[in-house]
Write a protein that binds this DNA or RNA. Structure first.
Length: 592
RNA sequence: GCUGAAGUAGCUCAAUGGUAGAGCAACGCAUUCGUAAUGCGUAGGUUGUGGGUUCAAGUCCCGUCUUCAGCACCA
């Protein structure tokens, strides 16, 4: 077996470089902390990390600096990297002698017949399958990024390790560019934008639940109204079902088994345990069971936007993308088995339409299969999984299998989109459920006048509105398309004697066309007002003075597209209204 | 929840263990201006919170809450 040493002409040289980065980092750690026990140190898309059991020592910024300095020394020493193999038992003895007990476990995991390989540089030897660079001096442009916790083998019952993250590049400029990219990503962080644009905030007395401010609420409601509008087209019926239920409901649905600790519970007036609902499905099952449906009523599409409360672990909370209270664009489709195909097809259509509106052109689909913790008979799982897979194959949608990642009542599609800077997000989902209809004994009367069991399809397009909101905010960097923008047109009067005109214009556009136009008649000069509009990322800004009043026109500018010149009021009315109505991503003022 | 870090005015940030400060925002007065900040002034704080050490704590120690990075979780 040849040593896997890579040179700069190899396609996977960067991989080798980063892999060696992890080794050099581990070597530096051991020079300062000889008691440290190494576990695994893989390469990632962004760089590398090493999970290390540091014993009593905790690594903070100072220690990180010390390790990074030591790495520079190792790089200067320019140690040659050697490859060596050992028979299994000898290898185990060797790592034991080094005190690297986790490595013994790793050796045990290597299948029989495969070589047990090591790489050595100077005094440091590590179990590793490579590849690596030829000399430590090749690692020049690197940086340690941060330290965090991680669990041995990713299991929270195991020892907690310290994970040190770093990255490395072949060229100095590449490293600088990467560090700049991190800064860029910080700038579009939805939590920062939410504060800056006055969309939402949080208070320590309600951790994980946002205050949607007036501007933020406009965006939220526009998103929800859009889905509502499509519900009419796709023949969904909206309901509002109870927020609080007796525990018995979730006992029956099976949610209590897996998610009991994630529910907010409280005693009601009679000391029964009540739960704030964490999802709508069981409630919709109760609604369905409240009457007898015929096959003629199916498919029955029941939608609901109610707030759902989930007692998420504190460490899981993240801005508005992971919250303790949220609304889903949730719906459950009760249908017959032979309606599944048409419903799935219609859902794909629905999803694509919504994503196009928001400018997400591409998505990836994952098919998540039965998890370990599940309810429902195995033959129903077989049926559900094969149905979903068949559907994807028929539509020729490329997909990836995700074994073990399905919901506890059924397999699911996960739709993943990529945002403006290439990050991937899971949003829409469709889940095929034979289990809940059985647990709730749901029925319909067939054409044969006998009772049959319907299938239940769980589906959401945004997923949670809060999450989609956050993702989209980062995607558009706060530059909402006009239909979503809290203020759509910002009017800046030149002098005080222009106030009356801008107020009239705003008033007429707002009242007659339902637009959101703001006339800035506050104190301050026009330069400052233009700046305010731009900082607020308002799609259109118009300065209004003598000229405009005389010709009944507006001088329109957009922070994104620049100057559109002077437009008549009539044209502005028409274009703005149309842009909002068709929910255009692009400015209609661009085309003449 | 776990490991680590952080929390000072509405926002962004200063302040060797020794009188808590600046810019923006707010408010007041003046200014009436043609496309990213008009000038002057006023007010704004139990330094997240509860304890402790000290002659003296924003600063040091402990608890707690929240936030951040990541892990684990995600019906």
């Amino acid at each position: 077996m040849p040593a896997k040493i890579k040179t700069s002409s190899d396609a996977d040289y960067r991989f080798a470089l980063r892999h060696s980065g992890a080794h050099i980092m581990a070597q530096a750690v051991l020079r300062h902390y000889p008691q440290a026990k190494l576990t695994v140190g893989p390469v990632t898309d962004e760089g590398f990390f090493y999970d290390i059991d540091m014993g009593e020592v905790t690594i903070g910024p100072d220690e990180l600096k010390k390790i990074e300095d030591e790495m520079r020394k190792i790089s200067k020493e320019n140690l040659p990297v050697e490859y060596l193999e050992m028979p299994r038992e000898e290898a185990k003895l060797y790592v034991k002698k080094l005190g690297q007990t986790y490595k013994v476990e790793l050796i045990n995991q290597i299948p029989e017949g495969e070589p047990i390989s090591f790489y050595r540089q100077g005094e440091f030897t590590d179990l590793c399958e490579g590849p690596h660079i030829a000399r430590t001096g090749e690692l020049k442009f690197f940086k340690l990024l941060n330290v965090s916790g991680a669990y041995w083998k990713g299991d929270q019952n195991n020892a907690q390790l310290q994970r040190i993250y770093g990255t490395a590049f072949e060229k100095k400029e590449q490293l600088q560019e990467y560090l700049k990219m991190i800064e860029e990503a910080k700038k579009r962080d939805h939590r920062e934008l939410g504060k800056k644009l006055d969309l939402f905030s949080f208070h320590p007395w309600s951790p994980g639940i946002p205050f949607m401010h007036p501007k933020g609420t406009i965006v939220y409601n526009e998103m929800q109204d859009y889905i509502r509008e499509l519900y009419r087209e796709y023949d969904y019926r909206e309901v509002i079902t109870p927020m609080i239920y007796d525990e018995a409901l979730f006992q029956q649905s099976g949610h209590l088994q897996g998610f009991s600790e994630f529910m907010f519970k409280m005693p009601d007036a009679d000391e029964h345990i009540s739960c704030l609902k964490p999802m709508n499905c069981p409630g919709h099952c109760l609604y369905y069971r409240g009457q007898l449906f015929s096959y003629r009523d199916l498919p029955l599409r029941i939608a609901e936007f109610s707030k759902l409360h989930r007692n998420e672990k504190s460490g899981a909370l993240h801005g508005i993308t992971r919250v303790r209270a949220m609304s889903q664009d949730d719906a459950h489709i009760f249908c017959t088995e032979d309606q599944i195909e048409a419903e799935t097809a219609s859902f794909f259509d629905f999803v694509e339409r919504v994503y196009r509106t928001f400018g997400f052109e591409k998505y990836d689909v994952k098919l998540a299969l039965r998890p370990e913790k599940r309810v429902g008979r195995e033959e129903l799982w077989d049926l559900a999984e094969s149905t979903l897979q068949k559907m994807l194959e028929q539509r020729k949608v490329p997909f990836e299998l995700a074994p073990g990642e399905g919901a506890f009542y059924g397999p699911k599609y996960e739709f993943h989109i990529k945002d403006a800077i290439g990050r991937s997000w899971q949003l829409a989902t469709l889940q095929l459920d034979f289990a809940l209809p059985e647990r709730f004994e749901l029925e319909y009367v067939g054409a044969d006048s006998h009772r049959h069991r319907p299938v239940m399809i769980h589906r959401a397009i945004f997923g949670s509105l809060e999450r989609f909101y956050g993702v989209y905010l980062e995607h558009c960097e706060g530059y909402f398309p006009t239909w979503l923008a809290p203020i759509q047109l910002y009017l800046v009067p030149v002098r005080e004697d222009h106030f009356k005109f801008v107020e009239e214009v705003a008033e007429s556009l707002n009242r007659e066309l339902g637009l959101r136009v703001y006339a800035d008649t506050e104190e301050g000069n026009m330069g400052g007002k233009v700046r305010k509009a731009n900082v607020a990322r308002v799609p259109y800004v118009a300065v209004v003075g003598d000229k405009e009043i005389e010709t009944k026109s507006l001088a329109i500018k957009s922070p994104k597209n620049g100057d559109f010149g002077v437009k008549t009021l009539a044209e502005v009315r028409e274009k703005l209204l149309k842009e909002v109505q068709i929910r255009s991503l692009e400015s209609l003022f661009l085309s003449n």
